[in-house]
Amino acid sequence: MRSSQDFDDEIRAHIELETDRLIAEGVPPAEAAARARRTFGNETAVRERFNESQRWYWLSQLVRDFRFALRSMRNHPISAMAVVGTFALGIGATSAIVSVIDTVLLRPAPYPNGERLIAVAETRPVGAPGTTVASIKLEEWNRASKTIQGAAGYYTESQSDTTGALPETVIENWRGDAV
């Protein structure tokens, strides 16, 4: 890897050699140096072309852009904070939603063979009351279905707990096991 210092040295050497040559040809020293520079052309442009041709040029550009970003943030702290806050809220909300989708929709339920669990329901004509399944049907499904290995259901019942000072409603959960 060649340093730009090395490249600059080479340019300087060139100008010295060219000046020497012109002086040897009889050009006055003061004019020789100026003419050597003139025939060299645009030194800065040549240096830039060398720098841009370097393999890690993109990295130095990246570092420079990064520094510039930090500097701008320091100069405008309020807008920087607003942007950082926006990003934080956005990223937070997105990752919360994604983790919900992941656990609820994408991951199988946390039971053995959870990926084989499905929920089954009956649908009824619009306006008809109730969406529950008669428990006798579970037995029917278990007996007749070839698609599912076993069906189970649950239902809840409201009870009154009167053991305390005041009565309380208790939801009782009943479960019918798969065959």
Partner: peptide, 24 residues
């Protein structure tokens, strides 16, 4: 610098070599 000189000399001083463009 020698290369620049040589190109110019060998071309009979016809070719105009911008010395700077030589280095890239």
């Amino acid at each position: 610098q020698g290369i620049a000189r040589a190109i110019q000399a060998e071309s009979g001083e016809v070719l105009l070599v911008d010395h700077g463009s030589l280095y890239p």
